[in-house]
């Protein structure tokens, strides 16, 4: 069987997810041996920018018309499109203010009378083109990435994690930052897969992986309010990684 052709792309993001791929040190040679990586600007200066791709891995949110056009072009040349990282899956940090007036935000950042920048409210990939698979995380987890590639190579869809960070946190027998210390921990709303890395280090979960399926944010917000947190602080925390409408 010929190796699947692969392209790895970044829209508006920090390139962290692409870096995780390059950081798969001990697995990298296996990955390169199994995939025919044709287009990966971050890792190579020689790319085939027009070939058909079996798999396109796309990081970052769509925040400009140029991003949207690139994404459409990638979609058109790919059989399967994978959203890589929280920005691509949910909109991420770039989408945290998307309910606000764009023109005013541009004025605030660049001063009045700035040139006409290409800037649109941030969107997740699935809001622009059909997406076949999501690998969330800020950045993605190496193990989840390698497992997803292993599954795709066998023609399988990798299993989606359908439980919250609390589950992994409890499995590791951490003290609970929310129930014991009254901290603003987003673990109950956030999709697991990180091994509860932050609570393990006694740092409240900020929800960087995006919401778990069926997240009950209305109920958790009540708990936070009862514990004395101001509504705007709760909203700010919940909207950092996933836009309004998704979490609350």
């Amino acid at each position: 069987m010929s190796k699947p052709t692969v392209g790895i792309f970044g829209l508006t993001g920090c390139a962290g997810d692409q870096l995780v791929i390059l950081n798969c040190e001990d697995r990298l040679m296996d990955i390169v041996a199994l995939l025919d990586v044709r287009d990966f600007l971050m890792a190579s200066s020689e790319n085939d920018t027009a070939c058909q791709l079996d798999i396109a891995l796309v990081e970052g949110a769509v925040t400009t018309r140029r991003d949207a056009a690139r994404l459409l072009a990638i979609r058109q040349r790919s059989k399967a499109l994978v959203a890589l990282g929280t920005c691509a899956v949910w909109g991420g940090v770039a989408a945290l203010d998307r309910g606000q007036d764009r023109a005013r935000l541009l004025d605030e950042v660049y001063g009045e009378g700035h040139p006409d920048y290409d800037s649109i409210p941030a969107q997740a990939l699935h809001e622009v083109v059909p997406v076949d698979l999501n690998i969330t995380g800020c950045p993605i987890e190496k193990e989840e990435f390698v497992a997803a590639i292993a599954a795709l190579l066998n023609g399988d869809v990798p299993l989606a994690v359908e439980y919250a960070v609390c589950t992994e946190c409890r499995m590791r027998e951490n003290n609970c930052l929310l129930t014991e210390r009254g901290e603003l921990c987003c673990g109950p709303l956030t999709v697991a897969g990180c091994g509860a890395r932050c609570p393990e280090l006694r740092i409240a979960c900020v929800g960087c992986r995006g919401p778990v399926d069926d997240a009950n944010s209305a109920s958790l917000v009540k708990v936070f309010e009862a514990r004395g947190f101001a509504p705007q602080d709760i909203a700010a925390r919940l909207r950092t990684f996933a836009p309004q409408g998704v979490t609350s």
């Binding site: 439980y163 919250a164 609390c166 589950t167 409890r170 609970c176 109950p188 009950n216 109920s219």
Partner: peptide
């Protein structure tokens, strides 16, 4: 059901 977070704890 309206209260439970399905957190699994």
């Amino acid at each position: 059901g309206a209260r439970c977070l399905s957190c699994g704890s």
